[in-house]
Amino acid sequence: MDAVVYIGHGSRIMEGNNQFIAFIEEVKKEINISVQEIAFLELASPSIDETMEKIIMAGAREILVVPVLLFAAAHFKRDIPEELLAVKERFPEVSFYVSKPFDLHPKMIDLVLKRIEEKRLKNDGAILLVGRGSSDPEPIGKLKEISKHVQQKLDCPVYPAFLTAGQPGFIDELEKLQLEYNKIYVVPYLLFTGRLLKRMESKIENSEKEVILCHPLKYDCFMKEVLVEKMEEQLMSLVKECLA
Rank of each mutant, 00 (worst) to 15 (best):
D79K: 10
I24W: 00
T164Q: 11
R78H: 13
D103C: 13
V158W: 00
R115Y: 07
G141Q: 15
D79P: 09
E93W: 14
E232P: 01
N182F: 07
I7K: 00
V130P: 06
E201I: 07
R120L: 05
G133I: 02
R115T: 05
E175F: 01
M14E: 13
C242G: 12
V150A: 06
L41H: 02
Q19C: 04
L174G: 00
N206G: 11
K114V: 12
N18L: 14
D2S: 04
H149P: 02
I80K: 01
N206P: 10
E50M: 10
L104Q: 02
I212E: 11
Q234P: 02
K203W: 13
E138S: 15
L113N: 03
L196R: 00
E180D: 11
E208I: 12
R78P: 04
E83Y: 03
V158N: 00
S47I: 06
G10S: 08
E145G: 06
V94L: 06
M57Q: 14
K119R: 13
S202Q: 15
K224R: 10
R12G: 13
V35S: 04
Y97C: 14
H105M: 11
G194E: 01
K230M: 13
P168I: 01
G133M: 04
S45F: 14
I13F: 09
K224H: 05
L196M: 02
P101D: 09
C156A: 15
F102P: 03
Q234F: 07
V112C: 06
V226I: 15
H215K: 14
K107E: 13
L235N: 03
L191G: 00
S45V: 09
G169K: 10
C156P: 12
E208G: 08
R61T: 12
L85Q: 10
N18H: 11
I38E: 00
A72K: 04
L217V: 10
Y185F: 14
H215S: 15
L85V: 09
E241F: 09
M57I: 13
S47D: 04
L177F: 02
R120M: 08
D136H: 09
F76C: 11
V239G: 08
E232Y: 12
N17A: 06
P139A: 15
I7M: 00
L121P: 01
V228C: 06
K153C: 07
